[in-house]
Write a protein that binds this DNA or RNA. Sequence first.
DNA 1: AACGGAACCTGAAAGC
DNA 2: TGCTTTCAGGTTCCGT
Length: 271
Amino acid sequence: MPELPEVEFCARKLRGWLDGRRIDAVEATPGRPLIDVDPVALARDLVGRRVAGIRRLGKQLFVDLSGERCLLVHLGMTGKWVPRAAQKRKHARLSLRLDDGRWLDFIDPRKFGRIRLLRSAALESDPEIGRLGPDALLLSRQPRTLRPILQRTKRAIKVALLDQSLLAGVGNIYAAEALHRVRVDPRAPADTLSPRKSAALARALGAVMTESLERETDDEITYLQEARASNPFDVYGREGEACVQCGGEIRRFVQQARSTFWCPRCQRPKI
DNA sequence: AACGGAACCTGAAAGC
DNA sequence: TGCTTTCAGGTTCCGT
């Protein structure tokens, strides 16, 4: 599923496909992932605009457009942008024809994505955007800045890492991977991590996300649950297998209604 | 504030 | 084989 590295990968691809292009035609299907947007009105509002840049904050994508507009895109669980090959892909929800004649399709089988068109001036005051914490990848380069963020909550560290208002971009997979790498119990209260562990965790988050990003070489990203994907992770999806760090058995439990994978042997509740 | 649970969605995989 | 159930997880919302 798209977490920060997958969204960053998407942003980089979009820069190549979209940046500087003019939108000449639009096709959109009503309902999700369009939120409170009439497809016809959206098309009318998009056509003729030129793409001024692509930005990312956490899992949010910002396609900056001429005329002080911004197309906000959240990939949700299954969203991805793909250049159209022979014909429009199944599950295409929004399609853009660019001034090079090519079509770009946003496909999203499960419709968990979100797409909105906003005035640029309205971005900061938007509740969804304004609430986001600092970007996790940027923060990982200032490892000591994580501690004060974790000090703000007593919730379990795994749960805190998924809170986008504390830190933007970390999802279920990378939270588990980073905690495993620094051998922190996912149940440990966030505010009990020492300065040393907090900094190590920040670096581990940066490392696991960067490594994932470097694995992406194709034009189209393959999400983990899709048929062709093999599991590149140390603990995620590896219940019952041996821990690569200590040989212990990887276990799974449900935390805040989602799976947490961990090694009870090397991720001890010490802190 | 924190937490559990449900809802939103569909396809793949597992179970029968 | 074919039908049914379960599971996946980003986000929001609701009740406790």
